[in-house]
Simulated scan of single mutants.
Amino acid sequence: MFVVENSTLTRSQVLSVLNFIRFFKENVLPLDKFISRIKERRWLRTSCSDRSPVEFVLFDPEWRLASQISDIPFIDTDYFGEEILSLEEELKSLGVLIGFNGSFKLVGDNLKSPSRLTSLTAEAVLLILECMHHLGSPTKLVETLRGVKCFKTNIGYKSPGECFLFNSEWACMLQVFNGFPLIDHDFYGSIIFSYINQLRQIGVKLKGTPHKFPPDLKKFLREEKWLRTRLGGV
């Protein structure tokens, strides 16, 4: 019976297992049976909990952005030390995910709680929209984002349902009303306009979609004297 079959291993034991795999591979000895017996068992420590190798990720710069919005189960390199980074091929043979490689589902499945997704960077928001694009806008992502003040607008961070995406129709409103929450497309870049479908699904107000104007704007239009008549402004 292998030690890893029924227990969580210590740091030194984990490194010994990986070095054992390296030794056998370098000496062209078969390891299929050994690897198949341990890759599904929970014996490696991650930043979240103890998991099996196939359930977690080795952190590298490709994951830095995803880690802003998602609780990815990274190997606990603080616990294992730098040595584990030199055993990348051995970890990969056990099923550990190395490199981002379009892992949009993993990001979406481990999305952080709404309270931790406020005031996101432009890159983080665009990654979420890209995840939606690849995953077909899964319910969890859509429902999580709808109530989060994650979009930067001209009047601060707002939730998707409070935002408008700029088009020429909104330009005239900006001339008379400074509380019109337009998504800051200079902040996100022109690429934000390529996610029209995803923005619509999370509630952003777009040209041609039914919407309600902000209460302050409705109050202004009803109560302020802005319409000129023959008798003057009323």
Rank of each mutant, 00 (worst) to 15 (best):
T229D: 02
L126N: 04
S16L: 08
D78Q: 05
S7H: 09
R45F: 06
K225L: 07
I202F: 14
K152I: 13
E62D: 13
E89V: 04
L174F: 09
L97V: 06
E224H: 13
Q68C: 07
L85S: 07
R146G: 12
C150I: 08
F34P: 00
G81A: 14
L117E: 03
T229R: 02
E55M: 13
S36G: 02
Y195V: 03
M132P: 00
V142C: 07
I192Y: 07
D186G: 09
L227T: 08
D76S: 06
Y195P: 01
C131T: 12
S47F: 06
V234R: 07
D32I: 05
I72D: 01
K218M: 13
S7V: 12
D186W: 15
K219G: 04
E90D: 05
T46V: 06
F100D: 00
I155D: 04
E40V: 13
V54I: 14
F187C: 01
G156A: 10
H134F: 14
A66K: 03
V96S: 05
L135C: 09
A171T: 14
M173I: 15
W170I: 09
T118H: 12
R222C: 03
P214W: 10
V28E: 01
G108I: 06
P214E: 13
L31G: 11
G233E: 11
L227R: 14
E130P: 00
R41M: 02
D109Y: 03
C172T: 15
S7N: 11
E123G: 04
N178Q: 12
Q198N: 09
T118Y: 09
N178F: 08
E123L: 04
F59Q: 03
S137I: 14
M1T: 14
R64E: 13
P210K: 07
H185Q: 03
L135M: 12
D60E: 05
D109K: 07
G233A: 11
N197Q: 12
L29V: 15
D32L: 02
L18R: 08
E89F: 12
F164A: 05
F187T: 03
L44R: 08
I84D: 00
I183T: 08
S36T: 07
D109N: 09
L117W: 10
Q175D: 12
L94K: 04
E224L: 12
Q201E: 14
P53R: 01
F166D: 02
M1N: 07
F164C: 07
E123I: 01
E26W: 09
D186M: 13
S67P: 00
W170C: 06
I69D: 01
R11M: 13
I21S: 07
C150M: 15
S119K: 11
N197D: 12
F100H: 05
L126C: 03
I155H: 10
S70R: 10
R42P: 02
G203V: 15
V57K: 04
I84E: 01
E89R: 13
L117M: 08
S67I: 07
G232P: 01
K112S: 11
T139R: 12
E130W: 08
F34W: 08
V3A: 14
A122V: 03
R22Q: 08
T153G: 05
L182Y: 10
L111G: 04
G189N: 12
F104P: 00
S49T: 05
S113Q: 10
E169I: 15
V17Q: 05
F23V: 03
E5D: 07
L18P: 04
D186Q: 15
C150A: 10
D78N: 09
T10A: 15
E40R: 15
L165G: 03
R222Y: 01
V54P: 00
R230Q: 10
K149W: 08
E130A: 06
